[in-house]
Nucleic acid binder design. Structure first.
Lengths: 336, 336
DNA sequence: TTGTATGCGTTATCAT
DNA sequence: ATGATAACGCATACAA
């Protein structure tokens, strides 16, 4: 009770010292005796004093807030990306809290960055984390213009953008090679139609993974996939090429494949194997479970926040590629 | 470029007026001539001035931030609740932005409310929205203690808690009655094992819905369901009772049922019908699609924010039960 | 080691 | 209708 009405001045008066002394005792800056420090700290502890973030911010010209730009669309794709964004947020929140920072979320959908602008213009945050980065990202462009420190989770062609991302290329390459070592030898990559950076990295990883196993690819080894019509022609291709393993660009594609196979009573992995370049909870629930690549999304958020804090602190950090990943082997690539 | 270094004082000097005049022109409060107002506003527009949120906050003793308490667990159940929380956040963000407020998220998992405490104690928000409310909710208890305005999304037995929730009872009752009017007459409710408030409301809705159609229930009409072992005994019960429709407490249960039926080649709706008291994207993707109850979660967030803002504004709003819902009929309850 | 005075950018209270 | 000035709560350069 009695809320947070206690100010540094109250403490000073109560203890018969000056505000400066109290301030010093709290921050530990400046020369001050152990005795008074202890006395002040004790009083603070006793009366549960907490400094006003606003007053402190105004004085130091800092908000101690990090703005996290989050997808504001009604439907985040098939909701399949939501867990990623949440874990990212969790990670960022964790290291932010550790540094005494809080999280301000800015919901931006597509090109409408008005919400982000409001937050930035009103100086509500000391830095920004973009949890995704679209093609021709307006948010990134805007932030660059303002000069406010910011980092982006994901990959962009823009070199002078601090980006934190998983090593999709390396992971896909390793997984491709590993799964192919299980016996299958005629792979097809099902590529999503939207071309963002990460799909490019996955594609290259796939290609090099095949190369690692000495498998030659042709034009029909990588085909766009988006739904019913693609499914029909896909089956022809599989027959023609004698393909025996399908790599899916992401979990949405993999789930679609699994659903159609189930419907048409195509048995996996007997008819052909299936693997996904991105894991999701669904892939573990479906029968058979789908082998997939798993990343530590929380860590992604943590690193993003860490690097942003460095940037805010005046350092000059550079981009980061997280090499960690896990290949989750499930029944869909079981050796027969 | 040239950031937000522009202050109200700069404007005053540039225009040869006092800070007071500028402030008045901006806020519209106090007597001031149209001429100078226009002049100031033009200058502001021209130079893209935006007031400092911190300074304004310090002066008015307000942060213009709303704290949204979000689940901070690694795994939010089966991730099935995540879309709900996101839509809730979206809604809150929307009306908050409309009122010039921003969102500070507090990630709290279970009983660890330290993050929320930090935000509250440092006065980083003028009010709090709890996007869920657990049994013996520590966050709610803490907030009550502080006296800070807050509202909760969901239902709690605590009467002096401002809560915003969907009318689960009414919706479930209506859906139960409607689906039963399709021909089926021997229903079973599959209840989740965790007992939170909302499951209670759904259960009562189910009971009264049955009553509305003159269907008598016994002890075996409502059975707990949690996985494999329950599935086995459930099949016995269905045979014994001749049950022809399964109502599922939520989408997770419904999905589990659908998966098992698929595996054991039990045809829906031929063998029995299936309906869920909570919709999710998955329920629309599975074959056959599952009839379910759909709510406007965004609106839930909007209303929560609206009511919280009223509370912050000194009014004394009361709880709100949203009567809107939609019964999404899919093939799982198709009349044969 | 401690205290004084000033600034941070805005709003609010008085005057004028 | 407008202006000077004092808060708001904290940090800090400068004195003592």
């Amino acid at each position: 009770m009695s809320g947070g009405k206690l100010t540094i001045d109250d403490i000073a008066k109560a203890l018969g010292v000056s505000k400066t002394t109290v301030s010093r005792a709290i921050s530990g800056k400046g020369r001050i005796s152990q005795a008074t420090t202890a006395r002040v700290l004790a009083y603070i502890e006793q009366h549960k004093y907490r400094p006003s973030a606003m007053a402190r911010g105004l004085a130091k010209q800092k908000t101690f807030n990090i703005c996290v730009v989050w997808p504001g669309e009604e439907e985040v794709r098939d909701m399949t990306l939501l867990p990623f964004f949440q874990r990212c947020l969790l990670g960022a929140g964790q290291t932010a809290a550790g540094a005494g920072y809080d999280l301000v979320v800015s919901l931006v959908s597509g090109d409408d960055i008005s919400n982000l602008q409001r937050i930035v213009e009103h100086h509500k945050a000391d830095g920004v984390i973009l949890t995704r980065i679209l093609e021709g990202d307006r948010a990134a462009a805007y932030l660059k213009e303002t000069g406010l420190p910011f980092v982006a989770v994901g990959s962009s062609p823009d070199p002078d953008l601090i980006q934190i991302d998983n090593d999709h290329y390396g992971a896909c390459r390793a997984m491709t090679a590993k799964v192919l070592s299980g016996g299958a030898g005629r792979p097809i990559l099902l590529a999503s139609r939207d071309r963002n950076r990460v799909t490019g990295a996955r594609r290259r990883g796939f290609e090099d993974g095949c190369r690692d196993r000495g498998i030659a690819l042709d034009e029909e080894s990588i085909i766009p996939y988006g739904g019913q019509e693609d499914w029909n022609s896909l089956q022809d291709t599989i027959l023609q090429k004698g393909a025996d393993i399908l790599f899916c660009m992401d979990d949405a594609i993999a789930m679609d494949i699994m659903a159609r196979c189930r419907q048409e009573k195509i048995r996996i992995p007997e008819a052909f194997q299936v693997a996904s370049f991105y894991d999701s909870h669904n892939l573990s629930l479906v029968t058979p479970g789908v082998t997939a690549l798993s990343f530590d999304d929380r860590r992604l958020g943590r690193e993003a926040a860490r690097i942003l804090l460095e940037k805010i602190g005046g350092e000059d950090p550079s981009s980061l590629l997280l090499k960690d990943y896990q290949i989750i082997e499930r029944e869909s690539t079981r050796r027969l």
